[in-house]
């Protein structure tokens, strides 16, 4: 049985931990709201961009001069995995899930004889993957200390991917990120960026409208595709940011609850020990008096 003093300090320490976790939960909740709004705001652009890319790619489909961003290099040798994680931990399994998914994907591709390169966005992913796959990793990108994700941040990632593609360093690019499903659920998603997956077969009444292009399709595509890539990455980054705050909120809620349980148990032990002490002292007094 620990002494009363030890119990008292223990209770005080758990209480202050609980204060921290509940504050973190509150912060995560408000950041989550902001991140969700931002993700919401980016959606109209992404939707319209998709529509335009679908219309354009339908009209250049099959043409051998279609840009690389759309059809890839025609090879399937070097794969680039872009792992999107958070810069901070304490968010449950949020970062570990991405790390594991990336590791498994890399192992699977290598078992098939492909070369794998990994680009990490976010500090935690880099730290996780560095242990095992450091030889395949490119310089990571991190937005630590940034208040708000901007579109230009996503453009930076997109530019690097485009540059690597046109230099012939990669053939396929896949994005691995946490999709925001609901406040408490994130889903690890692998999204192929290059070559662009064929657009879902929508009713041709909408997309089938024959567009005129000015200038020609290929010139537009050459400018549109990097933008489409950037917005794809931007949406993923925002989803991941929203997911991160959701995961942290859930993790901190759990931690706060656990701390509460612990305080209750410790307080009970403390009271029991105190009472036992009092009883023992009484017995000592009484038996002392009787002995006289």
């Amino acid at each position: 049985m620990p002494s009363l003093k030890a119990l008292r300090t223990r209770i005080a320490s758990v209480k202050s931990t609980q204060k921290i976790t509940s504050a973190m939960k509150m912060v995560a909740a408000s950041k989550l709201r902001r991140a969700q709004q931002q993700a919401e705001a980016a959606r109209p652009y992404a939707v319209r961009m998709e529509r335009m890319v679908a219309a354009l790619s339908a009209s250049v489909a099959g043409s051998p001069s279609a840009p690389q961003l759309l059809i890839g290099t025609g090879q399937d040798k070097v794969h680039l995995l872009i792992a999107v994680t958070a810069d901070r931990g304490l968010a449950g399994a949020f970062n570990t899930n991405i790390g594991r998914a990336t590791r498994l994907a890399a192992r699977k591709l290598e078992a098939e004889g492909k070369t794998v390169k990994i680009l990490t966005v976010g500090r935690k992913g880099r730290d996780y993957l560095r242990r095992e796959l450091s030889s395949r990793m490119l310089d990571g990108i991190s937005y630590a200390g940034k208040k708000r994700l901007e579109f230009s941040d996503a453009e930076e990632v997109a530019n690097r991917v485009t540059a690597m593609l046109s230099a012939g360093e990669i053939d396929v690019a896949t994005l691995i990120y946490n999709r925001f499903k609901s406040v408490i659920a994130q889903e690890v998603t692998e999204q192929q960026l290059i070559p662009a997956p064929p657009p879902p077969q929508t009713d041709t009444a909408e997309t089938g409208a024959a567009y005129d292009f000015e200038p020609d399709e290929e010139t537009i595509l050459a400018r549109l595709l990097p933008q489409a890539l950037a917005i794809g990455i931007y949406t993923a980054l925002l989803e991941s940011a929203a997911g991160e705050h959701g995961a942290r909120m859930a993790a901190m809620d759990n931690a706060t609850r656990n701390a509460g349980d612990m305080i209750k148990r410790l307080t009970q032990n403390y009271n029991r020990a105190r009472q036992a002490n009092i009883t023992r002292e009484l017995i000592e007094i009484i038996s002392g008096a009787e002995a006289l």
Binding site: Q38, A41, A42, P44, Y45, R48, E150, F151, A154, A230, I231, Y234
Partner: peptide, 10 residues
């Protein structure tokens, strides 16, 4: 008419 930027629907 719709004017959209990546950050919002303007």
């Amino acid at each position: 008419l719709e004017i959209v930027s990546p950050e919002k629907l303007l």
